[in-house]
Design a protein around this nucleic acid. Sequence first.
DNA 1: CGAGTAATTTTGTTGCAACAAAAATATAAA
DNA 2: TTTATATTTTTGTTGCAACAAAATTACTCG
Lengths: 229, 229
Amino acid sequence: MILELGEGAGLDRQASGLGDTAYREMKERLIRGVYEPGYKMTVRAVAEELGISSTPARDAINRLIGDGALVYAGPKTVIVPVLRESDLKEITSIRLALEGLAAERAALHGNSQDIDKLRQIQDEINSALEVGDYTAALRHNKEFHFSVYRMADLPYLVSMIEGLWLRIGPSLYNLYPEFAEEKYGVRNHEMAMEALAERDGAALRAAFESDIRDGYRSLRRAARRNLRS
Amino acid sequence: MILELGEGAGLDRQASGLGDTAYREMKERLIRGVYEPGYKMTVRAVAEELGISSTPARDAINRLIGDGALVYAGPKTVIVPVLRESDLKEITSIRLALEGLAAERAALHGNSQDIDKLRQIQDEINSALEVGDYTAALRHNKEFHFSVYRMADLPYLVSMIEGLWLRIGPSLYNLYPEFAEEKYGVRNHEMAMEALAERDGAALRAAFESDIRDGYRSLRRAARRNLRS
DNA sequence: CGAGTAATTTTGTTGCAACAAAAATATAAA
DNA sequence: TTTATATTTTTGTTGCAACAAAATTACTCG
């Protein structure tokens, strides 16, 4: 609802109906960390939770599986994935390649109006961080990133990046302490806005790569902490 | 059947059943260019063609749409996508980033046994090219690429690359003349095998980037030729 | 108390009919 | 002939019940 992610993996939105709504709603919840990694997802549970019949619920689950947002834990058991360290590492490598590409290309198109908008988003991140509103900070952080990526005008690339974010989404909510304390991403975002103002693609890429690496370290630390408990 | 592509977008294969079989079969056909770009795909037609009921047929189509292998041409009309030049360009950019990454990482793990296998595949490509067996050449070409990519040991990355190939698959069959005449990819593949033998990640990446760019040029030429007619 | 096994419940899948909406076709008017 | 409109056909979606298979629980035996 609050954060508009376009759609799943297609480029143009044409699909509608209950199944599609269910898909979007579940995706939203997954990204927000409503379901803990390892949570068992069943067709009938989703159907009841969303007040729909099993067919569209099943549709949504299958699409989420296709996205990698849900995985099989057994032939008839679907769960929210628990990312291993190797998964996290691989996804980070892909993020560096894809989001780096998007950032570099974004520098070619971004105008001063775009920068103003980024400035606003960053102010919201700062405010949220000040107050300790973790959810809002995370939401605006995503807005910041995708605002830049969309500037690249490569819609399929953006949808692929969204798929990556969807995969790490559920792991985000173990991140609370670091996030607020370390003023997560602020420095990198400032660098990014500077690079964009100077239309420096390499610098913009570097800023985002740094941000992704910082995020990786936090996520890995959270994963290890969670593993021990 | 002949070319094993793993599965759609998930990492581990667990799904089974009619819907999954239908999905795989349709994916196979799409990659092979059985359906011309623009071909209208309907639930009932797929159901009848595969001898199944509408539910699993619908499942397959929806998953293919999620993959970007099918697109909406209208609210109730799904077609095999006709790639515009901008689409082709974007996909190529992503391929360079992702397949370049896979190649670079593959160099870290490839052993002499892998190289022998590549040599065999390349021999088959050459033979097919000699005889003019377009389909076989294409099939072995894909085998060559993915054999390398799988060496990187990044399963999610490989599945994302497969998604890219699935998207350009239907456009491949307009490529016949160039493919046979120009000994498509032979030089680049030779360079790749050399680079792999020397464990030179940068060189391996360069070889694959060159191959991807050559493919892009052929595809673009074919697209323009097809557009005029 | 623990491990193997049987009974029970839960679960995903499938086929199908009904429905609404869109697409294709036929028709009529200019 | 062309364009607008009405009619018919086709199409995707949905809910649901039946089924087989897997997961869970209960139970028994050592």
